[in-house]
Design a protein around this nucleic acid. Sequence first.
DNA 1: TTGAAAGCGCTAACAG
DNA 2: CTGTTAGCGCTTTCAA
Lengths: 329, 329
Amino acid sequence: MRQQKSVSMADVARVAGVAKSTVSRAFIHPTLVAAPTRERIRRIADEMGFRPSRVARALSTGRTGLLGLVVPTLSNPFFGPLVAAVQQAAEEEDRQIVLMISELSAERETRLIERLSSEVDGLIVATSLCGDPFLRKVAKRIPLVLVDRRVGRLPSVLIDTPSGVAAIADHLIGAGHRRLCYVSGPPGSWADAPRIAALRGRAEESGADLVVAGPIPPTVDAGIEVSETVAKAGVTAVIGYNSATVLGLLHGLGTQGVRVPEDVSVASADDFILFQSTKPAVTVLRLPLEEAGHAAVGMLARLLRGERPGKPVVLGPELLIRESTRPPG
Amino acid sequence: MRQQKSVSMADVARVAGVAKSTVSRAFIHPTLVAAPTRERIRRIADEMGFRPSRVARALSTGRTGLLGLVVPTLSNPFFGPLVAAVQQAAEEEDRQIVLMISELSAERETRLIERLSSEVDGLIVATSLCGDPFLRKVAKRIPLVLVDRRVGRLPSVLIDTPSGVAAIADHLIGAGHRRLCYVSGPPGSWADAPRIAALRGRAEESGADLVVAGPIPPTVDAGIEVSETVAKAGVTAVIGYNSATVLGLLHGLGTQGVRVPEDVSVASADDFILFQSTKPAVTVLRLPLEEAGHAAVGMLARLLRGERPGKPVVLGPELLIRESTRPPG
DNA sequence: TTGAAAGCGCTAACAG
DNA sequence: CTGTTAGCGCTTTCAA
């Protein structure tokens, strides 16, 4: 049954001529052990290559040191950096990440969270398909932090894209643009309404016009198609829903002889690594994914310590101004 | 210390009026328990909401049910699908994935693997920075499967890109192209030599010419720059190292008035989701990442059962022929 | 400041 | 087929 003949606390204790409990204390509550003893134990443990068993510790403390992270997919470039950030932040707390990918299925999502919830200390959920009531229920049983989703007063880390989109508008209007276009995402996207509201607000304040094109699917093709509409709308600047849309716009406008940015400025509400090296480089919103990951782990750690999680953290995207946007005319 | 008042086996045993061990057996070795007893136990366990403690089981069996997965980054679109596939395959074996991201640092990679190796049942390593001797050492202590890397005779799942690149050449040459260009990756990329060898082989067999451009950095910019060279090389078809390179080529050739595919056919040795919806859609190699993930988990499972892992699995990429390649002229 | 002892919840001999 | 009995390796009272 046993296979690994790894060094246990008992072994260290024997060699050091002390009780197991003293060895344990030397690591967990160093202050409770006389300095010389402690150092000797540590040295011996080290020499013997002692590695405390997480499993045994987990059984006795009731905590595994594992955090569950649930994301909908890794194909969307939104989630890679988030996962990476969460993993790194967890590492700093000496915790590990158990990753689950729901593949955009609500049923799967629910099932995975259900299972995970009984095997980790806490959960970070960055998915949108499972129901609110379900999440509320899970949060009762286990510390839970939501990312980019709001469910009642559950602890959460939010990314305020509307304010980022507004920042794009400010930048554009500030540069002198008077007619802007927003190309919206797929029909029913919950992200669009607040963005459009924010844009309208900015437009009204400054007396600029706002044209909304779409909704269209978030694909390059759809972006290419919609570029005709955009070209005819008589706008001098366009903001695209996401990177695929913008890629399509760039291409579509190009083939219609509309130059970017000379004729029309283009910005993306979504970052995409290649946008920094396209010609022209595209003005984008950099989503604070790293920050979000760290914040989520921090919040979860607080919950696990029994502290109050604090208010939802709201992170603003950063506007990266590049060649694709400039004053009109 | 205790916090969750979850139902334990002892509880179930008491209610069912049997010994703990019988409850245990009812789940682990169902055949060793009389059918009626077994069913009664299961029903009661179910009603009580019993969930066996993985931790306790781990302590007693020495196996945690966790698999470690180490990848270099999630920014490269190569790894997202791989991670997803590994997670899914693991799930089917009722195992969970502990994910580590080395962020392309050899030192970090070594450290992570070192730590992970004492906390999971087995390891899947899809990184290239840590040293061969180190991996050999780790593999002695814990079942280990390599992905897209070969170290001695360690179990591994390989993706045979050279044969895929050769398939592109066959396709092109078969269509009548006589002068091909391969745009290679970054200086020192270990991937290039075998690809170029494969291409040369095909070219010689068929009496076609092969021009190698580069090495260049795997970026859009570099792709744009190199497109001048390509345009002047008098080739009718070009194969790019990866998606960024090809994106650059597409753009660069376009601005030089070289039409794709009318004047030059273009193919990518690397898939990229947007290539199916660009104009023209690009002929690519689809890397069998899902298959690789499944194969790796399967192989690891075999190792964990004490079976021989079998020979390295070699997976061939699939050639997806699209609009960007066609007969010359 | 240290030791002894009692678990944590489960699995796996070994009896019966 | 089922019960009894030891642990797995660690943390944590409780005493000394």
